[in-house]
Design a protein around this nucleic acid. Structure first.
Lengths: 168, 168
DNA sequence: TTAAACTTTCAATAATTATTGAAAGTTTAA
DNA sequence: TTAAACTTTCAATAATTATTGAAAGTTTAA
């Protein structure tokens, strides 16, 4: 396969994966081109590469910065801002997990802990089932939360070596 | 909090979580009401509960069945189909992970393995960076894949007890 | 200060995704 | 067989989400 074809396919695959997981397709594509770029890129570069507008580029790059996946890089003697992606894939995964946990999972944990204790006759089957499910979910999500905290805080080698012990 | 309020809040929270993770909001809401229902529900029940059309109900229920999260339950002496959800949350998580891996992650693994070997001068920095990133991703996704297989195949107690050892 | 070179915002619009509901299809009981 | 009681499909439409691009805002060099 030729480089440009491979590059296009990677951008497209990464964008598709993102959109399947609830992330703006264009944001994922911008991430893709920054991931494979050997040097920082400016807004123009990204616009040209993906054929998108300046406003769109700006918003998605800032989103990536908010996710802590991309940072601004100043080039001396140039007024433009350049952007570069975190290249360590383990670090990338860690930051994505951390952010999604904070934005999307933690609010759910908060709600579940409230829904566990509802008023009402615990002899009514609807109420019994509801409470039991909330308790199950709360316990499960709590365990997952702890496991993910581990995952976020351990380094690659430590975590995988432990995971692989489970395989032995 | 009163039962009906709690129920509404759970349906809404579950739907929101789903849509943030790329799953049809209504499908997640249908799942929510089946999760907390002590008895199987028919299409009518779901339509009324969520105020959605018959067609929409039918499609989302069938999707849930395809995800192996819901099954048909026949009630003797009744021509209607009833639906009930898998209630073991660990099993629910396992099936969701299994399905998303199959549908969304495995195609990516396949693409990455191809993109690793591209033609071109490996002295060109673009090509060097690209190849290195594809190799990194391929290794990472391969490890994740193995870890997820573990997760899918182990039972709750075994997995969590092992994860918690890491916390000690 | 000023104006050139940039970045950011946001209302209008386009693109995508979800939903409706009527028509077609299927199953069952008699 | 038939017709009633259901389920499924799918074209039209609605709702949601993403994008544009021009205008407003900001920063920097001189």
């Amino acid at each position: 396969m030729e480089f440009n074809e491979a590059k296009a396919q990677f951008i497209q695959t990464w964008g598709k994966l993102g959109s399947e997981w609830g992330i703006n397709r264009t944001m994922a594509q911008v991430h893709a081109i920054l991931l494979i770029s050997p040097k920082p890129l400016c807004t123009e570069d990204i616009m040209e590469e993906l054929n998108i507008s300046r406003g769109n580029t700006n918003m998605n790059v800032r989103d990536l910065i908010n996710w802590d996946l991309v940072s601004k890089k100043l080039v001396p003697g140039d007024r433009k801002e350049y952007f570069e992606a975190e290249k360590d894939i383990w670090e990338v995964a860690r930051r994505i997990i951390k952010e999604r946990k904070k934005r999307e999972v933690e609010p759910v944990i908060k709600v579940l802990s409230q829904l566990k204790q509802i008023d009402g006759d615990s002899e009514i089957s609807e109420i019994k089932e509801f409470t039991s499910m909330m308790e199950q979910l709360d316990r499960f999500v709590g365990k997952m939360d702890k496991s993910v905290n581990l995952l976020i805080n351990e380094n690659e080698n430590k975590l995988f070596s432990l995971l692989f012990k489970l395989l032995k």
